[in-house]
Computed example of a mutant assay.
Amino acid sequence: MRAMPQRLGLSILILALISMVSAITGSARAQDEETRTGFSGLPVPRFVALKKDVVNGRAGPSLDLDVVVIYRKKGLPVKVIAETSDNVWRRVEDHTGRRVWINRSMLAENKHALIEERTVIFAEPTEEALPRARLEPGVMAKLEMCEGDWCRVKTKDFRGWAEKQNLWGTF
C-alpha cells in the first residue's frame, strides 16, 4: 500500500515537469515572432534571400557542423530568427518550417516571395479587380511593392496584385 502514494507523487512531479517544459517552449515560440534588434543591428525576425544557387543549411553555427539541407534556388526567401553574437551566422526558417544555420555571406536582401497556396493575382489590389493569372503553390515571384494587405508581384509571364497572406517572404 505504501507504493501507491509514491507513484502518485511521481506522477504529479512528471506532470509538473511537462507543464514547465510546455510553458518554456511556448514562450520561446512566441518570442521567436517578437521583433527585436539582432547583433547585426537589424530587426529579428526579418526576411532575407539566398545569395547563391547552392547554399548549405547547417545543424549549428559552424562550418564544422553537419549540413542538414542543401538549398538550390538563388533568391529563395528565408526568415532570420536569430543571429550569433559574433554576427557571422543566421538561424533561419524556410517556408516548410525547417530551421537551420546559414553563414551571413550566403544571404542577401529579399526581393522575392513564394506563393504558399493557389493564388489569383489581380490587376489592382482588390478582389473586385480583373484577374490576371492563377499562381500555384511553390511559384517564386519578384516582390515589386506592398501596400497594406496586398503586394504587387511579377513572375516570368505575369504581373499583378496578390494578397500578402498567401505569400511567404513578406510581413
Rank of each mutant, 00 (worst) to 15 (best):
A23K: 07
T25I: 03
T25Q: 06
A28P: 00
A28K: 11
A28D: 14
A28G: 04
A28S: 10
R29G: 02
R29T: 09
R29C: 06
Q31C: 00
Q31T: 12
D32A: 12
E33T: 08
E34G: 00
E34D: 03
E34T: 12
T35I: 13
T35G: 00
T35A: 10
T35D: 01
T35Q: 02
R36H: 08
F39P: 03
F39S: 09
S40L: 05
S40I: 03
S40Y: 01
S40T: 15
G41Y: 11
L42K: 15
L42T: 13
P43C: 08
P45F: 06
P45R: 10
P45T: 14
F47W: 06
F47K: 12
F47N: 09
V48Q: 05
V48C: 04
A49D: 12
L50T: 08
K51V: 01
K51C: 01
K52V: 06
K52S: 15
D53Q: 11
D53R: 04
D53M: 02
V54C: 00
V54Q: 09
V54R: 10
V55N: 03
V55S: 03
G57M: 04
R58W: 07
A59R: 09
A59N: 04
G60V: 01
G60N: 03
G60T: 01
G60Q: 00
G60L: 00
S62R: 06
L63A: 11
L63T: 06
L63N: 15
L63K: 09
D64S: 09
L65M: 13
L65N: 13
L65P: 00
D66C: 03
D66T: 12
V69A: 06
V69M: 05
V69S: 07
I70A: 14
K73I: 10
K73D: 14
G75W: 04
G75Q: 09
L76M: 15
L76K: 13
V78N: 02
V78Y: 02
K79C: 13
V80W: 07
V80F: 05
V80H: 10
I81L: 04
E83N: 02
T84R: 08
S85Q: 15
D86F: 05
N87W: 04
W89I: 08
R91N: 10
R91W: 02
V92T: 12
V92R: 00
V92H: 06
E93K: 13
E93L: 00
E93S: 12
D94E: 13
T96C: 10
T96W: 06
